[in-house]
Design a protein around this nucleic acid. Structure first.
Lengths: 149, 149
DNA sequence: TATTGTTATACTCTATAACTATA
DNA sequence: TATAGTTATAGAGTATAACAATA
């Protein structure tokens, strides 16, 4: 009795989905890395650069540079941490919030177009699998405290 | 009656899956771009650099450079096209084929671990959605001949 | 003149190593 | 000494513009 797919069956599908998303990139849009950071700030609120780096599983210097680009573009701002002279707090600007909303709207609309082309049973199957796919992705998340790179 | 998910519902799930795959990257492995090119060569056989660029929706100079790195690493080789003095044919080497197989095996195994953590109904829901997800990703492919960047 | 590919240049994203400032 | 962050440097990946060689 077959209780589910194997990694070997799932992998090509995921690879194709990644390619699909990549093709939906538009030249004017936010990069994937920028979107991820802005989305995290919108979801969890302003936070220290170190926490951003850990959350995105990026190195601290890498996050310093990414935040630097976002700040240069006016999407986030750095605020000195009043309780810790070493730290900085990173928070969204209004422009950052707007850019994030625009980007998400654009991707959502593009996905809607694709979903519209599917037969209703396909749409239903995808809808039914969304919670499971979310749990699959989450299963990879709490890798625990496995070093900070 | 709900006939399917909206792009706004699907987007965060896809974003999470992309992050999952990114976390599965190992330092020693092939990059996503390299894997995509090797997989295409394995699937469709050797082809001209221009066709590779079009297939991957990359620019011609970008593909020149990517193929250059792959060639430097011994994973592909360039063969002058006997019928067209301007062209080069790119083909997989045995090392490229091996590297591709190893990478895919590693990703598949990592996915198997994650799938194992899911409840059987979740696995079943994902299995049921695989054909639909494949068609969703394919719906984005044949964008037609919309310029070559 | 159009196509194929390369070279030149630049930007994003990412990393490690070395450093400064604060705790 | 440990932590937060930056600077320096390097490499992958990607792009556009300009060019050479061939068709």
């Amino acid at each position: 009795m077959d209780l589910g797919p194997t990694g070997a069956q799932l992998l090509p599908v995921l690879a194709q989905l990644v390619r699909m998303l990549r093709q939906m990139d538009t030249p004017d849009g936010l990069s994937a890395a920028a979107t991820a950071v802005l989305a995290r700030l919108a979801r969890d609120g302003g936070q220290r650069l170190t926490d951003l780096a850990r959350g995105e599983r990026a190195s601290q210097p890498g996050m310093t540079q990414l935040v630097g680009r976002l700040e240069r573009d006016g999407l986030v701002r750095r605020i000195p941490d009043p309780y810790d002279g070493r730290g900085v707090q990173v928070e969204l600007t209004d422009a950052g919030r707007t850019a994030l909303a625009l980007g998400e709207a654009r991707y959502s609309a593009a996905l809607d177009v694709l979903l519209d082309r599917l037969a209703p049973p396909d749409r239903a199957a995808i809808a039914d699998a969304l919670p499971a796919l979310t749990r699959l992705a989450e299963a990879a998340e709490p890798v625990g405290v496995r070093g900070d790179r």
